[in-house]
Simulated scan of single mutants.
Amino acid sequence: MTVTIKDIARIAGVSYSTVSKALNNSPLVKEVTKRKILKVAEEMGYEPNLAAKQLVRKKTDVIGLMWPTIERIVLATLVTNISKAFEATPYSMILSVDSPETAMDTFKKFQVDGMIVFGESNKISVTTDNIPFVIYGVSGKNETTSPIIDANHEASMQKAVKHLFELGHRHIAYIGHLDTEDALQSEKVEGYEKAMKHFGLNEYIQIINSNGLNWFDGYTAIDEVLGQEKLPTAIIGGSYDISGGILRALQEKGVRIPADISIVSYDNIPQMATMEVPMTCTGVPVDILAEEIVHTIIERIESDEEIESVKKLSPTLTERESSGPPPNKR
C-alpha cells in the first residue's frame, strides 16, 4: 500500500503542511521536528510522488541528449562524460540516438526541461516547441540562433601543424572524411589548409579522403599515401578511429612510427594514451568539453538573461610517442 504524506503526519503527530515542508527541507520547520519526520518517512517506506511534484513545479529536472550514434568511440566517450557531469547537478539525462523527429517525440513524453543537440549537419532542423536547447557544433555554419558549443577545430589543426612544423616536418598530409555536409569535418580540413598556408607550406598541402570516420576508413586510406612517389613525413588523422586505422596500416607495411612517419590525431580522449603507439593528439579534452556542454544547457534553462550565443573553447595538444622529428632531422 502506498504511503502518503497524510500517513506520515498521523504517525509523527504533526500537520500535513509540516510534513510537506520537512520533506522539501524548508527552513520553516525546526531541525528536531524535521529529523523526526524524515525518520518516520524512512521507516514507513515513503517514496515521493515525483509526477505530482513535477506538476506543481512545472519542471522535470530532465534533459534530453539528441545524439547521432554511440558506435564511434569518441562520441560514446563524450556521452559518458556528459552523463558524469550531470551527476554533480540536480538534473538527469536521457539519451536518444533515433532520428530528430523520433527523439523529439520521446523528449516531449518525458517533458524535458532542455535539450543538447549534436550539430553534425550544417543545417539543424529541430522543432523544439520552445524547449531550450544548445548545440555542440561549429559556429558560423549551423543555421540556428541557439547557443553553440564550438570545440574550435580550426585551432586544433593549427596546433597540430605547428607542433609538427617545430619538429622539422614540412610534408604534412591530412587524412579525414571530406563530407561537406558535416560541419565538424569540413572545419578540420579548412583548419589544416589554413595552418599549412600560415607556415608557408602551401606546396606540401595534401588531403586524402578517408570516405568515412571509422577505423577501417583510416586503414584503407594508407594505400593512397604509400602509392605516392614522395611520402609525407607526418600525417594528421581526422579522428581517433581514423588514426587508429592509419597506425595499424603503416605498421603492417613496415613503416616505423615515428621514425619514418609521425602521426598526430584529432580528438583529445584518454584512449589516445593506450593505443599501440601512444598517440599525440589535439582538441578540447573530453571532460572539459562535457562540463561546458552541461553547464551551458543548465544556464540556458535557469537564467532569465540571454547567454552568449557562441562558446568557442580552447583546444590543447598532448604530445606522446607517435610524433618526433622527420628522418632527415634525426
Results as ranks from 00 to 15, higher is better:
residue 11 I to Y: 13
residue 12 A to D: 09
residue 12 A to I: 03
residue 13 G to E: 05
residue 15 S to Y: 10
residue 20 S to V: 07
residue 23 L to C: 14
residue 24 N to K: 15
residue 27 P to S: 07
residue 30 K to F: 00
residue 33 T to C: 08
residue 34 K to S: 13
residue 36 K to L: 14
residue 39 K to E: 06
residue 40 V to C: 06
residue 49 N to P: 10
residue 52 A to C: 07
residue 52 A to L: 14
residue 65 L to R: 04
residue 69 T to W: 00
residue 74 V to H: 08
residue 74 V to T: 12
residue 81 N to T: 08
residue 83 S to I: 15
residue 83 S to M: 13
residue 88 A to I: 00
residue 94 I to D: 05
residue 99 S to G: 08
residue 100 P to K: 02
residue 103 A to H: 07
residue 103 A to D: 01
residue 104 M to A: 06
residue 108 K to A: 15
residue 114 G to D: 04
residue 116 I to S: 08
residue 117 V to M: 04
residue 121 S to N: 12
residue 122 N to M: 08
residue 123 K to W: 13
residue 127 T to H: 13
residue 134 V to E: 03
residue 136 Y to I: 02
residue 137 G to N: 04
residue 140 G to D: 14
residue 143 E to F: 06
residue 144 T to S: 11
residue 147 P to T: 02
residue 148 I to G: 11
residue 151 A to V: 12
residue 155 A to H: 12
residue 156 S to N: 03
residue 157 M to G: 05
residue 166 E to G: 01
residue 175 I to M: 14
residue 176 G to V: 00
residue 184 L to F: 04
residue 184 L to Q: 08
residue 187 E to A: 07
residue 187 E to M: 11
residue 188 K to W: 05
residue 191 G to F: 13
residue 201 L to F: 09
residue 205 I to K: 00
residue 212 G to V: 02
residue 218 G to R: 09
residue 219 Y to M: 14
residue 220 T to Y: 05
residue 228 Q to T: 11
residue 229 E to K: 14
residue 233 T to Y: 04
residue 236 I to R: 14
residue 242 I to W: 11
residue 243 S to K: 13
residue 246 I to A: 09
residue 249 A to F: 02
residue 250 L to S: 07
residue 250 L to C: 12
residue 259 A to E: 08
residue 261 I to W: 05
residue 263 I to R: 03
residue 263 I to N: 09
residue 265 S to Q: 15
residue 266 Y to P: 07
residue 267 D to M: 02
residue 270 P to Q: 10
residue 274 T to A: 06
residue 277 V to G: 01
residue 277 V to I: 03
residue 278 P to Q: 09
residue 280 T to H: 09
residue 285 P to D: 13
residue 289 L to Y: 10
residue 291 E to V: 13
residue 294 V to C: 06
residue 294 V to T: 03
residue 295 H to W: 11
residue 301 I to C: 09
residue 303 S to L: 02
residue 304 D to L: 13
residue 311 K to Y: 12
residue 314 S to W: 05
residue 316 T to N: 03
residue 323 S to C: 12
residue 324 G to L: 06
residue 330 R to F: 06
